[in-house]
């Protein structure tokens, strides 16, 4: 397919995901996907003194894991694309400090995994770099103190709240090698439907997800049935129900092949209300069960669409509504060659 002036970019050379790695905290390890993660830590401090340092360490470990998994060395990685939720994306930048690789910080809130993979694919497909690394991370305790309340405060979480996933995922994309291939990327628009409740991220992000997904189907001339799996990032239970409604309103019916990372990562009895959220949510789900099934050939074609809520504590205190964004990539399974 030729490049067209659409929101979707089609990759002629279809970059390979040659290595992947996911690392999670103890709570996620006890969740539904516990056995699929590359590494489960039973200490959410990851041997560090503060949670911020812990998140950084987690990201470094994920990158190291992905590099090893790809069977390459740090010298082969020509660019590191990463982002996270903390102010000034410190987890990513500080992790990049230790590896001596050119670094580009990206921010797309919880959509960062899809954003960095899409950007990385563009760079590799365009022939500018042979191999790049894409990563992201989030930590429950750092997000909680930055966006909400102190951990020990005795408050109740509103019923629409979600639980930030402690985890990090990394991928190595290359123009040569073996593995699942990224065939297209759809960059989303910022969509705001006027939700002002910061404890209802799912509802704030669902319209953006709907917009991107509709664009993707239109640009690629495909239908939901053409995919083995349509995976949204962290809409949660409420958000994904809203997405299904919105898509139906626009005449597209999402079937049983639609899943949401936030909904599948935790078990029902883990007290996470609407489900998981955070950059790490979509990153760890993608880099565990989804990658494994893409490699084994169980999935042939998957849409990975991570969603993000682009707010800050300042904007919500000033009464602004919560804008959402969603980026999507289409990944093709291993055995299509």
């Amino acid at each position: 397919m030729k490049k067209e002036e659409k929101q979707t970019i089609f990759f002629n050379n279809k970059p390979y995901i040659i290595g992947y790695y996911s690392i999670v905290g103890p709570k996620e390890g006890k969740g539904t996907l516990g056995e699929y993660f590359s590494e489960v830590s039973d200490d959410d401090f990851f041997g560090q003194k503060t949670y911020e340092k812990a998140e950084r360490t987690m990201l470094e470990k994920a990158l190291k894991g992905a590099v090893d998994n790809a069977g390459v060395s740090y010298d082969d990685i020509k660019l590191f694309l990463s982002g996270d939720l903390l102010n000034q994306i410190i987890s990513s930048s500080y992790a990049a400090r230790t590896i001596n690789i050119p670094y580009v910080g990206v921010f797309g809130a919880c959509s960062t995994m899809a954003e960095s993979l899409a950007l990385g694919s563009c760079l590799v497909d365009g022939g500018h770099f042979e191999t790049v690394a894409c990563a992201t991370s989030s930590h429950f305790s750092t997000a909680e103190r930055q966006f909400r309340f102190p951990l020990e405060l005795g408050n109740q979480r509103p019923p629409t709240a979600q639980w930030t996933v402690t985890g990090s995922g990394a991928d190595i994309i290359s123009s040569k090698g073996k593995g699942p291939r990224i065939i297209s990327a759809t960059f989303g628009k910022v969509v705001d439907f006027g939700i002002s409740d910061v404890n209802n991220m799912g509802a704030a992000m669902a319209p953006a997800a709907c917009d991107t997904l509709l664009t993707l189907f239109k640009d690629t001339k495909t239908k939901p049935e053409d995919y083995d799996l349509i995976l949204s990032g962290d809409l949660g239970k409420l958000g994904s129900e809203i997405l299904i409604d919105l898509m139906e309103y626009h005449g597209v019916k999402l079937g049983l092949n639609y899943k949401d990372c936030g909904q599948i990562i935790f078990k029902r009895n883990q007290n996470v209300l609407m489900g998981g959220s955070g950059c790490g949510c979509s990153a760890t789900v993608l880099n565990s069960i989804i990658m494994k099934k893409l490699i084994s050939g169980e999935y042939k074609k998957v849409i990975f669409m991570a969603t993000g809520a682009l707010l800050s504590t300042l904007s919500c205190q000033q009464g602004d509504t919560v804008p959402g964004i969603a980026h999507a990539i289409v990944i093709e399974g291993d055995n299509n060659e």
Partner: peptide, 9 residues
């Protein structure tokens, strides 16, 4: 004396 612990709920 104490250190903040992640909510375990």
């Amino acid at each position: 004396i104490f250190k903040a612990k992640t909510k375990k709920l």
